[in-house]
Design a protein around this nucleic acid. Structure first.
Lengths: 192, 192
DNA sequence: CACACGTTAGTGAACACTAACAAAGATAAT
DNA sequence: ATTATCTTTGTTAGTGTTCACTAACGTGTG
């Protein structure tokens, strides 16, 4: 899908957005960081917009394993634990993701981009919602709470944790703190 | 604090960020929207950065009543309900806030702005944490869950709800959906 | 000799911001 | 009451800088 150079460009773009904000994502900055000229970039992407589309595509590819791993668990609560820990593991390994992935607002003015980003997010939410509903039917998850609320709680707290981790300058261990969050969520989901 | 014109400029800036993204927040766009010339803006704010500082200050002022109202409740769970509903009420009345207020990343490259925004957020979090801890001591909130986790769940799910509301084009009623979220959270907090 | 991938040099447009000037209202001395 | 002056808030016309992007050209490889 991506050539080596294209991947390098996308990774550099993510790095710049993470460290300097999207306002400083310019062709010049990407080119300088890589060490090639600006027109050279246009050999690999037709426009700046194409690079941003590449960024979202890159996220999709990198995040996919987190969803595939879910198949391995049978119990619903284990699936939820897996959902959280696998996502946090990937973000932990790619710290620059944290500052970019949950700031949909960054891509706001480009209809196509916001749509692409939303689709990616909604896909995750739908998968989690299915897990929760199935878990409620099998009595592994309490049924007196709206399934949509449970999804919002899981994803919302997970996102906030990532945001806090990123904003704090990665001062704490994301996976350790994620384990605590996960254990508490499992405790909340079980009883009732 | 703000003159009438300054307030108009800040409100216009928020409107532009919400509808066109921060990349399109330009002096020209603000001036055109208001119907004055660009240099006229500089009579009221020294620079574009000062306008962005004004945006954050404006949020602080508008959000303050949500925190003040908390004093009226005695029970911890009622305080939490109040925290959620009052915040959602204000955002519901100012829909443009939704797209701007939870996208800290927008202000990323300006150290001062990110600090100001973080301070505002952290203040809310600290207040909620105090409420939760007091509630746990008084046995109004279950104590087998980390207080920090509870805060993350409440704020995280609230923020996600607002983001979803904003992204969906305000297709659902924020306060109604917030009431459901709030009831479910109270249910989760009580037992144990 | 074709093609992939790079270069230098430059395009017009948009950006934040400024210099210089104008008009209106308030203040205050005559 | 009239005049003079200051302040506030606007204007037009520009500044230099940076932006995304392009034209034309080089060079090494199959």
């Amino acid at each position: 899908m991506f050539s080596e150079r294209q991947q390098q460009i996308v990774e550099t773009a993510i790095k710049i957005i993470a460290h300097k904000g999207i306002q400083n994502l310019t062709i010049k900055n990407i080119a300088n960081d890589i060490g090639i000229s600006e027109p050279a970039l246009y050999r690999h992407f037709g426009s700046k917009l194409e690079i941003l589309k590449g960024v979202i595509e890159y996220f999709k590819i990198k995040m996919k394993p987190a969803l595939e791993k879910l198949e391995e668990s049978t119990n619903s609560l284990n699936k939820i634990e897996c959902f959280i820990s696998e996502h946090l593991k990937i973000i932990s390994l790619n710290p620059d993701f944290a500052k970019v992935i949950f700031s949909e607002a960054n891509f706001q003015n480009e209809e196509n981009l916001i749509l692409k980003m939303n689709n990616m997010m909604n896909q995750s939410h739908k998968i989690l919602e299915t897990i929760v509903q199935y878990g409620q039917k099998k009595d592994e998850i309490r049924s007196d709470i709206n399934s949509l609320t449970i999804v919002r709680i899981i994803i919302g707290s997970m996102r906030l944790l990532v945001t806090q981790w990123s904003m704090s300058g990665m001062i704490f261990n994301l996976e350790t703190e994620g384990k605590q969050l996960c254990d508490d969520i499992k405790k909340l989901m079980r009883e009732g």
